[in-house]
C-alpha cells in the first residue's frame, strides 16, 4: 500500500498504542516511544515491521507511542493507520484474510 498522507490510529490510553504514519521518499523509518522500550522495544519494532511488510508498505515514517499494548493491538493500530494513510474508504472492504 502506498502512504499518500499523514494518519493516526489508536489512543494514549493504557494498553493501547498510538501509531502515526507519514509519507516518505524511500524506505521505512520507525520510531518507538515506550516506557517499556528497554524490555519490549525490539518486539514492538518487529511486530510493526512485519505488519508494514504484510501490507506492502515500502516507504513511510512511522512513530509508535506505546502505552503497554499487546502485539495484537500494535498490529491493529498499525494496519488502521496504514489504511487511513493510503486514503482507503473507512467502510471499504479490508483484506481480512490477508491481514495476519
Amino acid at each position: 500500500m502506498e502512504i499518500t498522507k499523514s494518519a493516526i490510529a489508536g489512543t494514549l490510553e493504557s494498553s493501547d498504542a498510538q501509531v502515526t504514519i507519514e509519507p516518505a521518499q524511500a524506505g521505512l523509518e520507525l520510531e518507538i516511544c515506550s516506557s517499556v522500550a528497554d524490555q519490549y522495544g525490539r518486539q514492538i519494532k518487529a511486530v510493526a515491521l512485519e505488519t508494514l511488510s504484510a501490507l506492502g508498505v515500502k516507504a513511510a515514517k512511522v512513530v509508535i507511542n506505546d502505552k503497554g499494548a499487546l502485539d495484537c493491538t500494535i498490529k491493529a493500530r498499525t494496519e488502521c493507520a496504514v489504511y487511513r494513510a493510503s486514503g482507503a474508504d473507512p467502510d471499504g472492504k479490508v483484506n481480512w484474510g490477508g491481514v495476519k
Binding site: G10, L70, D71, C72, T73, A76, E79, C80, D91, W96
Partner: peptide, 18 residues
C-alpha cells in the same frame, strides 16, 4: 463515528489472538 474502522481492526486481532 470516525473510529469505526479502528474498532474493526482492533476487533479482528482480538478475535484472532485472545
Amino acid at each position: 463515528e470516525n473510529q469505526k474502522d479502528a474498532a474493526r481492526f482492533s476487533l479482528y486481532h482480538t478475535l484472532k489472538t485472545v
